[in-house]
Design a protein around this nucleic acid. Structure first.
Length: 461
RNA sequence: GGCCCCAUCGUCUAGCGGUUAGGAUCCAUGGUUUUCAUCCAUGUUACAGGAGUUCAAUUCUCCUUGGGGUCACCA
């Protein structure tokens, strides 16, 4: 059975790039009817935060990616890691290193001035003398000293790194707490991971983890390293490039299905297909189609996708979502009409809410440019005549086409162009020259409200 | 700097030795729409450079250049 995982460290919000690798992992599991596990990497007690962990879980909930089984917390598994550390110590595959932090810093400085790669020099690897006083030792694992560490990456292909590049790295801190590369290998193995999908910033961690797998005699999973997402200039994505917190996208009015669709096409493709429902992604996703190269982040397509998903979303669902953006249309007797008339005009739920509010609340002021253009000439008398006609026909006005026929009639009897009534009417109802169809707006408002808004406008002329 | 990875329109990408190098987005233009948006149509724009291999390279190899990643008692 395929088992994948997402393993964030709870030091901040869920990053947009993290969501993509999580999505790739989740899709791989779903596609193979396997399991997608969630593990919180909180071995660094000093940097963890409960809020960060909750924020990450919340983001997962928002996008609708559910994990299987219980969330695994590494901080609760220290006893387990301790057991493996003791085992390696006993087998001579790991050793205590009494080098102080100061000594290590000095060594590193020397290496840097000599422009060498900074690495631990192995001075305690075969140490058997009397340990220095006052130093709590760290525990280092014995990495191979020659040869190559080789593995086949699912997206990058064959990777080989010289053993000399991997030093005897620390697996347990001076306080006894295990370190990342050690526990990742153990947990991935113990949790039954078959496919590790992660950012390629972890590529160099892989040989280290392989050292752990080998020392403990564990089976290797398939590694898949996904290239990074950079900003539009190809540089590392930072807050300055816009939102990097997944939840910011919710605040900006993006739909999770749009965000996921956008993300799945960043570094992965299925021919020319652009639109993927969640079900289609699951059906078609295969990590072997993941791109080797990094991709740049550009929100144009996300906006387009979001507009697409809003346009195609059932009104009932839209009405529910809109409540989180300050618009409650659920009680309105013309909800269907209201949403049909506005949903093609908002690329985000925030914009859609604005469009709806434009109709729902009478304009407090009239856009200067629009009113100047619309409220000129005979506008006042035309609007007054229109009000009279609306009132005369009141009982028969229900559908947009009913209102349209009144406008037709007005244009006909007064022998004027459509714009003569259209423009002033639009500004009277919405306050500006842009917006949904007049027929729909009037049908949504009803005769009373329509007349009231027109009369209010007339009063200012 | 050492090591590792990468390289097709501005951006996301298709391509897997022989194509008029395709799609999407963006942008521009036209049409539909009483406005705006939607929608439809059309158009501009790409194989980083240089050597090979081959009858033939965007595609394979090498070099250069450019970009990214990584070098913790962080994850």
């Amino acid at each position: 059975m395929t088992v994948t995982r997402f393993a964030p460290s709870p030091t901040g919000y869920l990053h947009i790039g993290g969501l993509r690798t999580a999505l790739f992992s989740w899709l791989t599991a779903q596609h193979n009817k396997g399991e997608f596990l969630l593990r919180i990497e909180d071995t660094d007690m000093a940097r963890n935060s409960e809020e960060a962990k909750d924020a990450i879980l919340k983001a997962f909930e928002w996008v609708g990616m559910s994990h299987d089984g219980e969330v695994v917390y590494q901080s609760k598994r220290f006893d387990l890691y301790k057991k493996y550390i003791d085992q390696l110590l006993k087998e001579g595959k790991a050793y205590k290193c009494y080098m102080s932090k100061e000594e290590l810093a000095t060594l590193r400085e020397e290496q840097m001035t000599k422009k060498e790669r900074t690495r631990y020099d192995g001075r305690y690897r075969d140490f058997s003398g009397t340990p220095p006083e006052g130093v709590d030792p760290v525990i280092r694992i014995k990495a191979p000293q020659e040869g190559e560490i080789f593995f086949v990456d699912g997206v990058k292909g064959a990777i080989s790194i010289a053993a000399s590049e991997v030093d005897d790295f620390v697996i347990a801190r001076a306080d006894g707490a295990p370190t990342y590369n050690f526990v990742v290998a153990i947990d991935d193995a113990l949790m039954g991971l078959t496919d590790v999908i992660r950012g390629d910033d972890h590529l160099y961690n892989t040989p280290k983890q392989i050292v752990v797998y080998n020392a403990l005699g564990l089976d290797l999973p398939n590694f898949n390293h996904v290239a990074m997402i950079n900003n539009e200039q190809g540089k590392k994505l930072s807050k300055r490039d816009g939102a990097t917190d997944v939840m910011d996208y919710k605040a900006m009015g993006y739909l999770p299905e749009a965000l996921l669709n956008f993300l799945v096409r960043l570094g992965w493709s299925h021919g020319d297909q652009e639109i993927f429902s969640i079900a289609e992604m699951i059906d078609l996703f295969d990590p072997k189609n993941i791109n080797k190269s990094s991709s740049n982040y550009n929100l144009d397509k996300l906006l387009w996708l979001n507009a697409h998903y809003i346009k195609n979303m059932p009104n009932e669902k839209l009405a529910v979502l809109l409540k989180e953006y300050g618009v409650n249309v659920e009680g309105h007797d013309k909800v269907e009409l209201l949403l049909d008339a506005t949903k093609e005009r908002g690329k985000t739920l925030v914009e859609l809410a604005e469009q709806i509010n434009l109709i729902l609340s009478a304009p407090n002021e009239y856009d200067e440019k629009s009113s100047k253009k619309a409220f000129k000439g005979e506008a006042k008398t035309i609007l007054a005549d229109f009000v009279v006609m609306l009132q005369n026909w009141e009982g028969t006005l229900h559908l947009p086409c009913d209102y349209h026929s009144v406008m037709d009639k007005l244009v006909e009897t007064k022998e004027i162009g459509f714009g003569k009534i259209g423009m002033p009417l639009r500004v009277s109802l919405l306050g500006s020259m842009t917006g949904s169809g007049l027929d729909e707006i009037m049908a949504i408002l009803g005769v009373d409200e329509t007349v009231s808004r027109i009369e209010k406008a007339i009063a200012t002329l």
